[in-house]
Amino acid sequence: MSQRLIIEAGRTERQYWRDLWRYRELFYFLAWRDFLIRYKQTVVGVAWSLIRPVLTMLVLTMVVKVGKLPPGGVPVPLFVFSAMLPWTFFSTAMSESGNSLVNNANLVSKIYFPRLVVPASSVLVSLVDFVVSALFMVALMIYYRFVPPAQVVFLPFFMLLVFAAALGIGLWIAALMVEYRDFRFIVPFVVQFGLYASPVFLMTSQFPEHWRPLYALNPMVGIIDGFRWSLLGGENLIYGPALVSALVGVSGVLATGLWYFRRTERTFADKI
């Protein structure tokens, strides 16, 4: 019946991963709660997770058309939306999980559970929006009678990559935000700026050649390119250095994010 528990300074380390498994239900419940409360007292409810990306797509389509930017040989809405899929997911998942610990301060200071559950479940909630948007993408493709190329089989890989990127950065921000609430203001700015620093309404190949390596340092460049390449193909190519930077950057950010989060986790309840 009973289990033995030893509490000592520095001890939590050893029980952590086992606990994470034991608290997996909490992980689903938190995601379920966040999803439920999101659209409470709204008239159109879940439709919001479709309306927002569609409106943004319309605006960006206008930008591309008015600016006479080449849409890579495909209909403009497809061109724009294929990049918005990963970008919207990344920006919402990252900021939601970044805010998650502080938003759940009452839980953190009153109940024990592996804190990793909180930012991770926030990313899961954003994944629901991603699925809704992906279905819209399919609808768009059907409307334009567009058949995706064979490399669409690589799409799950890029999805994994964007998930890892959002979680990694989310962990960093969540842990930092516990002590430095400044990140509450930094994050929206980064999201806004990131839209322009990523190939959402441009192709990477349109960037000036000598700036491109610098541009490629943004890991989202490789991920967005990857989405476009696997969904649309054609002129949408992956810029090699950007892919390398995405792979290295994402795994680095996830590994260090986990490390920093775990290192600071034990003092969350004291500082939050």
Binding site: M1, S2, L5, I6, I7, A9, K110, I111
Partner: peptide
């Protein structure tokens, strides 16, 4: 309740703990 870690010392608990701090 393991919300925060001790600085030193040790606690041994034989059983499932539920804490109701609020």
């Amino acid at each position: 309740s393991r919300i925060t870690e001790p600085t030193s010392g040790r606690i041994e608990i034989n059983g499932r703990v539920a804490s109701l701090l609020e």
